[in-house]
Design a protein around this nucleic acid. Sequence first.
DNA 1: GGCTCACTCTTGGTG
DNA 2: AGAGTGAGCC
Length: 921
Amino acid sequence: MDYTQSQARAIATIDRNLQIIACAGSGKTQVISRRIVKILESKKDSGIKPANIVAFTFTEKAAGELKDRIQRLCFEHLGTDEGLAELYVGTIHAYCLNLLQQPPVYHYLKYSVLTEVQQRLLIDRNSKKSGLTETPLLDGRTLTRWVDSRVYQTLLSVLEEGGVKARTVPTAVREAAEKYRGLLDEKRYLDYSGMLSRAVAEVKSNRKLREKIKNSVRYLVVDEYQDVNPLQEALIREIADLGANLCVVGDDDQTIYQWRGSDVQNIITFADRYPRVKTERLNENFRSSKGIVFTARQVVEQNPDRLSKKMESTDAQPFERGDILALQFADIHKEARWIARKIEWLKGAKYRDQQDKPARGLTYSDMAILVRAWKDAAPIVEALRDAEVPYLGGGMKSLFDTAEVQAIREVFYFLASHTPSGCSATSAVSLRKSLGEGFPGLRKEDISAGLKFLQGIRKRIPLGNDNQLFLQRVYLDLLEALSVREERVGTKGRTGEVIFFNLGKFSQLISDFERIHFHSSPDSLYPNFAGFLEHQAADYYPEETEETAHARPDAVMVMTVHQAKGMQWPAVFVPCLRANRFPSRRQGGRTIWNIIPEKAVPNADRYKGTKEDERRLFYVALTRAEKYLFCSWAPIPDNQQQRRVSEFFTDLTQSEFVLGTDPSRLPPRLKPQARVADSPLPITFSELRYFFQCPYDFKLRFLYGFDSPVNRALGFGKSLHDALCEIHAESIRGNVPSIADVPNLVQNHLHLPFANEEVRKNSVRGAEKALRQYLKKHGEHLTRLEHAEKTIELKLAEGIVVSGRIDLIRRTDTNEIAIVDFKSGEDTQPQEMTRLQLQVYAAGYQKATGKDADLVEIHNLEVGHIHREQVKESVIQSTLSRVVDAGKQIRDLNLPKHAKWCDACHSCDMVGICRTKPVSV
DNA sequence: GGCTCACTCTTGGTG
DNA sequence: AGAGTGAGCC
């Protein structure tokens, strides 16, 4: 591969701090990947290993791509990728969580991550303890439960991540936020801000952790640096101050997440804030035609306060007149229909991905429609559907608009005897009707069986606690009673697959609610849940953006400009360029500025969204296009705000490359053929485990989102595991724990969020016994440990990447290497599965260290039993080919049910929505 | 040119 | 909720 001079200089700069200003399409991923491999190459003799390099990306997806690129280059230049699993490539959040949940920090092992939905549920459930209703507005009123919880969430994250000076915030607001943080600690939760802020606090104050980072992190690379917020910058600063060489990569013109706290000042002032900074500008665009480059540049150059630079074209695509259009239509439907027609026109158009490569015909997946707001997608999606153009995304259907979810919602109204305002009470009769509409295909008898089941449950609710009354239990049992099966329900327009997808989403919703409200008794839990369903849920779970996580069908992408960050297509549509839409108008309502003064937040403007911010966003949209760029607009006459043209549209017409009417000359045709994009498929071992037990169970859980009912003892196995992690890690550091330490270990690690007093007591006893027994039997082994919690990553054929973590690697008395996995009574996993897992780990160990393992061991902690066997190369090979086959099946969504009732069905939580129990069992 | 009043209402990653 | 916008009026 040839590099430009500035690319080559950036790659070669490894002994100074480096700032790379990378224009759109300038090949920055290639450059930072190559630079990382260069570091490994040239610093090998001074002992630099992959584990000494850390790279932060903005998303997990970007991390996957970067990792893949680094690995390819590693093979190319070093001939091996040994140890590469220890080169951290990932988000700042995941890195922080790792810091908090790995030795020498043990405190956060028992914490779990709170999503935004769960955070909001927690705040509302504990409206006083979370500080919500004690937060004063600047005008003297206070925030209200339910109504203001979202603003409160925003406030909390701005206070934590926005670089806010504490003394400029009203005292009562500060105290409220502290109460919230106290609540999180009490419940052992980390929210997304907490992950970062706790990690920064630990790095600042924990001597052992500082030592660890100082010794391990020698090079830090930060991608998308323009979107880093003040708290993230604080972490970067700490790591750099501990001696890491720093390389930041970004483009100030592509800052689009300022409303979430990104501070573009970080990149603008980087060279002034860090010592010995070399700045390299990557100006050449290797993605787009000169028409696109020139047009986009002309747009963004209207912004003041940019870093000086000039994006230049390399004529990556030929420009032909008519490639770039700016069109006006009479109404939105004409606009949408034109787009659908143009897509068919583009299909099969002759195209070269690179000018020295053979041509192919464009297909649907080469095109994207980028909108400013989801609302705009609806009429376009409608036109695509009418024209039978396959599309992905833009799924505008709200979960609660579907008949199946409405029926389930009524079920819970019925159970709680809840009458939603403006409706009549839910009766058995009306329920029968809704269930019939929600689940077409069910017989009358099925629905009667379901109703009978529900009436039984309704009678038990006032009687109090009962494991059969857990919401998720009742939900799954109801579906079983109704004999709901994917292949039994649905009509032509609404397939069983779609219905199950929505039911799976609802299962997740139940999980979210139930985990936060777990300790309510049924007679308050059910009414609360009904109230939540009536008032909040639709708002908390807005619309379904179909995530077909594993599949890659040939379809046009419909998405927002924000989501399109980092992607590119041969053809891009940017419709709906109306005034007040793009640039978008600021929203009113109660905001954080009613709670804290603007001067409390540095660069407070960034949260508000300015015209410059919108222009950057527009620039991002334009630069996604390689060759074809079709911008358009149409007035919406009955919307006073949106009947005029966007000024951005007018700006476009200034470019000489833009035509105002569609010449519609037909380009030469070729057979449509998808671009060979071999994106890696990452799978974790725990996902794989579900797949091997039953592919359909995997589908229900990971494709549809069904969740198991909670178990009171949940967390016991994890707690034991955490305690062992400390025992092993400390042993490696030379502090082998003794039996006298057991009560403390249990005290520190045992966390059972759903236990009652009885379960808790038994668990303490069980955990102490297991640990004592372990230390007694294996205490002398603890001086011969190699690694605890070693991450492995196996790149297999077909781009399948399996990752997992080895509990323990130890050296035996006979000086063999043993890979150890610990099980507790909670694990119902068959031994066969564990052996499979260990063979994968043995292969991973070999990959990571270049050394072979001799033995694999399974320790059952509660029983004290050990299963040991020798590692055999032939067995590993056949295991790995089974894993590759599994990966292929997952990629093709080939996830069938077992042919008949079998061992896996016995222990399966989902069997009730899969098949009927045979009478003989 | 300035004032009033009716109308409208975004973006989403992170384990 | 309440801020920003734009039509209509003087």
